[in-house]
């Protein structure tokens, strides 16, 4: 059905999409615009996108000094990266065993995976919090990572993917003398790379965004992840200093957006794949 639009239909499609794109990007435009404006202008001339007096420097200075912004972004990076690495390292061997090996108890493990898919972290946060408290783990970066080292979703996704890898490849590897562990890392991982990268993107987006668990387990500003950091910023910023707040949102939103713009295909395909198989 491609390329058969009549010129008016083509123009109508473009016009409609541009209008909708305008609506969707409207918050981003105002976010950037407001981050450049002095407070007086925010109150006075709401709809002008270009400021009359530029206060970008002032707003962004506030954004990065009121809270330890660099530290908070770094926390986000460390936490997200650790989570992804642990999730893949733990999930891949289990997924391989579930997909390709026969063993008694496989059904029980699979049932646990399904159970895990049904239970969100939010629901079991109370026992997890109690455990973290008794282990003196609250207000550490470890507590931000530990509960997420298990991703049943990763196991599920990888298992689906590994099932489609031909058995002959594994038999050939075995007859070439590779141990099962070596098969996982030298044969399965390279072949499951599309699934692994898709999952990594999905995981990073989810955990970069997560507020619930950090809000519960972290109370120190310097250990905050970006969403929690922004809440601290809002708390520290009494009143309606929207210029500084928008500057802070720009700084905190930018990393993932830049990552996305640099690897759009990978992102959209990754999210689609994890979405469709989840």
């Amino acid at each position: 059905m491609i390329g058969r639009l009549s010129p008016p239909a083509r123009a109508a499609r473009l016009a409609l999409l541009l209008l909708l794109a305008g609506i969707v990007t409207f918050p981003f435009l105002f976010m950037i615009s407001t981050s450049l404006k002095p407070q007086s202008e925010v109150f006075a001339s709401g709809l002008a996108l270009v400021p009359q007096h530029w206060s970008a420097a002032e707003n962004f200075a506030k954004a990065v000094t009121r809270i330890p912004m660099a530290r908070i972004l770094m926390n986000g990076v460390i936490v997200c990266a650790s989570i992804v690495v642990f999730q893949i390292v733990f999930a891949l061997p289990a997924a391989y065993a579930l997909a390709k090996l026969r063993f008694r108890g496989r059904e029980i493990v699979l049932a646990l995976v399904i159970l895990g898919l049904l239970v969100p972290i939010h629901a079991i946060s109370i026992p997890l919090y109690a455990a973290a408290r008794s282990l003196n783990l609250l207000n550490t970066l470890s507590v931000l990572v530990a509960p997420f080292t298990l991703s049943v979703f990763a196991i599920f996704l990888f298992r689906q993917f590994i099932k489609s890898i031909p058995d002959d490849l594994i038999l050939a590897a075995r007859s070439d003398g590779l141990s099962e562990n070596a098969i996982v890392w030298r044969i399965i991982l390279p072949n499951a790379w599309p699934a692994a990268s898709a999952f990594a993107i999905f995981s990073v987006v989810a955990h970069w965004n997560d507020l619930y668990w950090p809000l519960i387990s972290i109370s120190k500003t310097e250990l905050a992840t970006p969403p929690l950091g922004l809440l601290f910023f809002r708390a520290a910023e009494a009143g309606d200093d929207y210029g500084a707040l928008m500057a802070a949102t720009v700084v905190i939103t930018l990393p993932l957006i830049l990552f996305f713009l640099a690897a759009q295909r990978l992102f959209i395909e990754g999210m689609t794949m994890t979405g469709l198989k989840g």
């Binding site: 990007t25 918050p27 969403p227 999210m271």
Partner: peptide, 16 residues
């Protein structure tokens, strides 16, 4: 463009 909000930090966009 339409995918942008998915990758924008929810808490930040909520502030916006």
């Amino acid at each position: 463009v339409f995918f942008l909000p998915v990758v924008a930090l929810t808490v930040a966009m909520a502030s916006v």
